[in-house]
Structure formats: C-alpha cells, structure tokens
C-alpha cells in the first residue's frame, strides 16, 4: 500500500478574488478566517457585489476572528459554533443562489472538503470552488471497511472510531466523500502494526 505522491490528493492553491462574481460566499473555519481577511487586504478592490461569510468559530483561544470578519466590507457574517452547523447554514445561503455566485472555502481540509461536496450537490463543478488551506492538517478519514468517518485524525496509524480496526491513512482522497481513505493496516498479519506517528498536525 503506497501512501505518498498520490494524484487524488487535493491541491489548495490559495484564495484569489473572482473580480466578475456578483455574489461572493466565503466558507471558513478556525484560522481559515485569516485567509479571508488576508484576501480582502490583498485584493479588496476586486471584490465587488455582495459578500456573505459563513464562519465556523472552531479556533478556541485564537484571535477574535468573528469580529474581525464583521469589520470587513461584507453584507453578513454567519458565525456558527461548529463545522457541521456552518455547513447547514451554507446550504441555506446557497440554495437560493444564482449563477454569478462564487464560492470560496478556507481552513481545515474538512471544512474545504465539505464545502466542495455541497457545491457539487448544488450542480456546481467542484473545480469552481476557490480554496486555501489554513490551520490544522488533521484529516477526515473514511474507513473503507465499515464506511465510518473518523474526524480530526492527526496520526498514521489511526483506530477507526466506528469498527475499531487499525487504519493506514492513504493519500487517496475522495471529493465526494470529502475524506481520505483508511485501510486496515494489519490485515495480512493481525497485530503487525507499524509505529504510530503524528504526521497530520
């Protein structure tokens, strides 16, 4: 089982403003807020039209991102307590949206992944979402055996939160599942488990 250099690994080229968009919808969690703030500083003049921010305030003890986002020239900031509630709010915002709306996602791979997944469900091509990774490199991992999702995975190997198998986290990534693939690491010889290391920090 190879782990490195796999082509399905998503790339996050960084936020750039779409100067033509009529509505800009930003989805961010934790330090992803800083990516939005930086973008306004860098390219604020290119951001025309309405701006809506949906923010999952998941960075405890971090700078007060919510009020710093409010201070930007935006129409509305939805500040939500978790990634899950932020995604639910995002559904509400995008359900009534029209073409000409540009979606941006910044923060953890989980936040980005779920935003891209939602965009796809609404008929948008996943490549239209502009992304920037910030903060934790923790992964959302799907166990290929029981299909359960294990959130905030920082180690390779990880124990599946659902079926309890020891999983090797591959770089194989599914945009539809918004998750990396976890495969039983000791399937050949039970208990033969490589050293567990914290690598997705």
């Amino acid at each position: 089982m190879l782990v490195d250099g796999i082509k399905s690994r998503p790339q996050y080229p960084g936020l750039t403003a779409d100067a033509f968009a009529k509505v800009h919808v930003f989805a961010a969690d934790g330090d992803g807020a800083q990516a939005v703030i930086d973008l306004f500083e860098r390219q604020g003049r290119d951001i025309n039209g309405r701006v809506i921010v949906v923010y999952a305030d998941t960075a405890p003890g971090a700078p007060d991102y919510a009020s710093r986002l409010e201070a930007l020239p935006v129409e509305l900031v939805h500040c939500m307590p978790t990634v899950a509630t932020a995604i639910t709010r995002l559904v509400g915002v995008l359900n009534v949206a029209r073409m000409g709306t540009r979606i941006y996602a910044s923060g953890t791979e989980t936040m980005i992944g779920l935003t891209v997944q939602l965009a796809q469900e609404l008929g948008m091509d996943p490549a239209t979402v502009i992304t920037e990774h910030r903060g934790s490199r923790a992964r959302r991992v799907q166990c290929v055996h029981c299909k359960g999702m294990t959130e905030n995975v920082t180690t390779n190997i990880v124990t599946c939160a659902h079926c309890g198998l020891s999983l090797l986290v591959r770089d194989h990534y599914s945009k539809r599942r918004a998750a990396f693939q976890g495969v039983c690491v000791d399937a050949e010889v039970r208990g033969e488990i490589p050293e567990i290391t914290e690598i997705f920090k």
Binding site: V144, H145, Q181, V183, C184, A187, V189, R190
Partner: peptide, 10 residues
C-alpha cells in the same frame, strides 16, 4: 475488495 481486505489479507 479493500472493503473485505481485513478478511482476505491474511
């Protein structure tokens, strides 16, 4: 299948 790898891997 990888789904059943833990059953046939051994």
């Amino acid at each position: 299948s990888p789904e059943n790898f833990h059953k046939w891997g051994s």
